[in-house]
């Protein structure tokens, strides 16, 4: 398709605008999804941590540490839960799911950090960890580490779908704008051909039907065509 030179700049501007919209929408989407999923994971961690802390009260007070371990093992089966551990009131590790040992970074803290903390642990990866006190801390605390790679995976998946959709819309927009521009520029091309025909530069630029259709248009192209014909007739002494 031949693009009218007059519109080339505008066309580039439109594409640029579309691109900017696509990029900014994707960026916003990544930011929002990242924030929401991270928040959701942190909330889940806190919820699981509180649930185990509440359940641990009874288990610790009435049953055996192995029953507490069984409880941790059940929660460990939840997708995204990277590890769990329980420390007693002295900070000693009484149950955990680590293999082959409690990481040194965690071991050195003795379960004292209860706030949400991001860790990057060798052999485990990036995690968000939260802790909850058991019996207000009198019986120790329970800690849950949520796998951040799971968050990243979910973010990649969610963002990937959004970007895929935006890309399709971007391509469709370009195609539609091309089609619309083509429709808009066709009368201008005809007008230019008609002008060349009147000037005798290209005598058979338009067929009889195309000329009649052009002159019959009620838009600016038709008006200009009729003006060109009037000028041409005036110059050749033909009464309009």
């Amino acid at each position: 398709m031949k693009t009218v030179k007059l519109f080339r700049g505008s066309l580039f501007g439109i594409y640029l605008l579309f691109g900017l919209i696509a990029v900014s929408t994707s960026a916003l989407c990544i930011y929002t999804v990242n924030k929401q999923l991270s928040h959701e994971y942190a909330v889940n961690s806190v919820t699981i941590s509180h649930a185990i802390a509440n359940a641990s009260q009874d288990v610790l007070l009435t049953r055996d540490v192995s029953s507490l371990q069984a409880l941790l093992d059940q929660y460990h089966e939840i997708q995204g839960v990277s590890y769990l551990y329980v420390t007693d009131e002295h900070g000693d590790f009484i149950a955990h799911t680590f293999i082959p040992e409690v990481p040194a970074e965690i071991f050195s803290e003795h379960g004292k950090r209860l706030e949400a903390v991001e860790r990057n642990l060798t052999g485990i990866g990036e995690v968000i960890e939260v802790g909850s006190p058991i019996v207000e801390g009198l019986a120790g605390s329970v800690h849950v580490g949520m796998d951040e790679s799971m968050v990243a995976l979910k973010i990649r998946s969610a963002v990937g779908k959004q970007v895929y959709l935006i890309s399709i819309l971007f391509i469709l927009s370009i195609a539609v704008s091309f089609w619309l521009l083509n429709r808009a520029t066709t009368p201008l091309h005809r007008l230019a051909d008609y002008a060349r025909q009147l000037a005798g530069l290209q005598p058979k630029a338009l067929t009889e039907e195309e000329t009649v259709a052009l002159l019959g248009r009620n838009d600016e192209a038709g008006e200009l065509a009729r003006l060109y014909r009037h000028l041409a007739n005036s110059q050749s002494g033909v009464q309009p």
Partner: peptide
């Protein structure tokens, strides 16, 4: 073993 048996 990292489970209730091992802990027991």
């Amino acid at each position: 073993q990292a489970d209730a048996y091992g802990r027991s």
